[in-house]
Simulated assay, not measured.
Amino acid sequence: MGLLAHERYCDEIVRLTGELRAALKGADLGTTVPTCPDWTLRELAGHVGRAHRWAGEIVRTRAAEAVEDEKVPDNSPASGDPAALDAWLAEGAAGTADALRKAGPDAEVWSWSSDHSAGFWARRMAIETVVHLADAALAAEVPYTMTPELAADAIDEWLEIVVFAQKQGHPGIAELPRDGRTLHLHATDAPDAEWLIERGADGVTWRRAHDKADVALRGPLTDVMLVLNRRLAPDSDRVEVLGDGGVLDSWLEHTTFG
């Protein structure tokens, strides 16, 4: 498992948005999202649709700097009509995927990361949609599944973001103890889906590996990903925590950038 093909990410943006739309269908859009308690389902959908359009505009215009929100074509439905919101979500996902396909993965564009390519945005938007689909499914009380490739890639990307934020001096990750403690993530339903994370003196490092650690988080790959993204509590009966749970709690406390 590793990076997916550019075209696959583009396809996933559309497919996953379709699953999000299905989760919203018939749901009370005023329902509070438990994992994003400042949002209702309608606001969650608005966030996803605007994120797609923002990334699409960056790629479409080959932006050399961040695009201001007011410069992004929005056209979001002013009414609470679920059908209009559904069509708006579909349109945004399709438009962004189209812009990404036309650009190709190597087109140079602005990003907040060290990777200034359209390929960065294809991956970022696919995984953004994966995680918020989980939020919507939980709030709407509908089933949620994810392909193993995307679940593993979401973990990889999150760890990359943590390391990048650390180098940028983000206040949350900057306070994570550099005490040499280690975490092991172990998916029980997918081969080679294991990670070893170390809080070293020089900061966080990680690699794909099976090894002993101060704490291990075990469970289905999707659930391990959801715990890491704070969408599932580590004391859930869907996962198992072995060893010093305080190390995992500390990690989750400090690796949040919202």
Rank of each mutant, 00 (worst) to 15 (best):
W88G: 00
E157Q: 14
D86G: 12
A122R: 00
W88R: 05
W39Y: 14
E70D: 15
E68Q: 13
D115P: 00
Q168T: 11
D98W: 04
P34D: 14
E70C: 06
W195C: 00
M146F: 01
S79C: 10
E12C: 01
L41V: 00
V162F: 01
P37R: 06
M146A: 14
L242G: 00
A84Y: 07
H184V: 01
N229D: 06
E57M: 06
F164Q: 03
T188S: 13
G200R: 10
G119E: 02
V227Q: 02
D11Q: 13
D156C: 09
V215I: 11
D223V: 03
A78F: 07
D202I: 03
R208A: 10
F257G: 07
A87V: 10
A64L: 01
V33D: 01
D244M: 01
M146D: 05
R62Y: 06
T188R: 07
T17W: 02
L44H: 02
D81S: 03
G2Q: 11
A66R: 15
D135F: 04
A136M: 10
A97W: 11
R199S: 09
A97I: 12
T35Y: 08
E70Q: 11
V142W: 06
V59G: 03
L4M: 15
H52P: 00
L89I: 04
L242V: 15
G95R: 14
R207K: 15
R60G: 07
E7C: 03
T40G: 09
G203A: 12
G46A: 08
T188P: 09
D214G: 15
A23P: 02
T147V: 01
G49L: 09
H6C: 13
V67F: 06
A22H: 07
E70L: 10
V67M: 05
G95A: 14
E12D: 12
H116K: 14
N75A: 15
A126Q: 04
S79L: 07
R207Y: 04
P82V: 04
A83P: 07
D98P: 03
M225G: 05
E91W: 02
R8K: 10
E141P: 06
A216D: 01
D86M: 06
H132T: 05
R60D: 12
R15G: 04
W110Q: 02
W54A: 05
D86Y: 09
L4N: 07
F164N: 03
K102C: 05
V109Y: 00
A78G: 03
C36G: 06
S250D: 13
M225R: 04
A103F: 05
W251F: 15
R53V: 06
E70A: 14
A64R: 13
E149F: 09
G30W: 08
V67R: 00
S250C: 13
L252T: 04
D192F: 09
A55R: 03
E57Y: 07
S113G: 02
G203Q: 09
R53F: 06
R62E: 13
V14F: 00
L133T: 02
P148V: 08
A174W: 08
A83V: 13
G243F: 11
I127K: 01
K102L: 12
E160Y: 02
C10I: 02
G46M: 09
M1N: 06
T40R: 04
